[in-house]
């Protein structure tokens, strides 16, 4: 089966930034969260997927098609929110903007658009330029959803958006994913969005994919262990990310293996606590360790330029 997104060895060079090489595939029916610090390359990645930035090397395929060659077919099936694209016509009202955008989509339903406007409490008669940052984000989201795409590419859709609308966005994205054909790639800083919606997490750092893993699997593998002692052979083990004293604790990204080894060494494990996603990501960024994806598992100390493939659930 063709993946919805195929990114093959994509590289993009800027004066002070290098994206890639990036390889990954997203198959339909999955939600992938792209997370990373500011300037890690998330927006550049989204623009590359949308054909707004042309890769120096490699290629991007969406729905098995090349964006440049079959732009109408490809873009008709995508809903994109991000990059403040609508600022180009910020003098227009939201409704005029929607009218302009809707002309190009064969599937846009006016009723659904109006339903979304009401749901997000957007005044369609207000000029886009006069909308608050949060409302502008909501307009982008509504226009991305209104033509019922098969793939949503959302670059920080809920930034500056109020809590109630954030919750509604999550609800709408969940119902969007009830259609088996649909997929989402979303970049976000909001942990609840990652926890509640995403199947996979792609960690970008300094323009490179540092990890691509299944959300539940990573939570199963990362843990903090309170232990009676730390055997010598584990002191410099790459699976131990951090050691803390008083009381003695270790943080690992390979819980089952480490647990087994500790038991073999007759070390008492006093307590095990699974790490929250935000803690895991913090460790990854703070320690800036090299990580890779092997069968959806993050490992420390390996090179990361492998193909990251998301398997359909």
């Amino acid at each position: 089966m063709n993946p919805v997104i195929k990114v093959n060895s994509v590289e993009k060079e800027y004066k002070h930034f290098h994206l890639g090489p990036i390889d990954f595939e997203v198959e339909k029916g999955t939600v992938v969260a792209v997370v990373g610090a500011n300037g890690s390359g998330k927006s550049t990645l989204f623009k590359t997927l949308m054909g707004l930035a042309q890769p120096d090397n490699g290629y991007v395929q969406l729905f098995g098609l090349e964006e440049q060659k079959q732009v109408v077919d490809v873009k008709n099936r995508i809903g994109f929110a991000g990059s403040g694209l609508y600022h180009a016509f910020s003098q227009l009202t939201v409704n005029k903007l929607a009218e302009f955008v809707s002309h190009w989509y064969t599937t846009l339903e006016k009723d659904y658009y109006e339903h979304l406007l009401n749901r997000y409490e957007i005044n369609g008669k207000e000029k886009f330029a006069n909308c608050s940052l949060g409302t502008q984000k909501k307009v982008e989201f509504v226009l991305a959803m209104a033509h019922r795409p098969q793939l949503l590419l959302l670059d920080e859709p809920s930034a500056n958006v109020d809590m109630l609308s954030q919750r509604r966005m999550r609800e709408d994205l969940k119902s969007f994913m009830e259609q088996e054909e649909n997929s989402i790639v979303i970049s976000t800083y909001i942990q609840d969005e990652v926890k509640q919606m995403c199947d996979y997490i792609c960690i970008l750092d300094d323009g490179k994919i540092k990890g691509f893993f299944e959300k539940d699997e990573i939570r199963h593998l990362w843990a903090r262990l309170w232990i009676s002692s730390l055997p010598d052979q584990l002191k410099n083990d790459p699976r131990i990310w951090k050691v803390e004293e008083h009381p003695l604790q270790v943080i690992t990204n390979q819980l089952p293996d480490i647990e087994e080894e500790l038991l073999k060494c007759q070390v008492d494990i006093i307590r095990i606590k699974r790490l929250e996603l935000d803690d895991i990501m913090e460790y990854m960024f703070i320690f800036n360790k090299k990580t890779t994806n092997t069968s959806g598992v993050l490992l420390k100390g390996d090179d990361c330029n492998h193909k990251n493939k998301v398997k359909q659930n």
Binding site: V71, K75, L85, A88, W104
Partner: peptide, 17 residues
């Protein structure tokens, strides 16, 4: 670059070159 911004919006929509 307002003209570039306008073209970016057009390129994000299903409009042929």
């Amino acid at each position: 670059d307002p003209f570039g911004k306008r073209m970016a919006l057009y390129r994000s929509l299903p409009i042929s070159m």
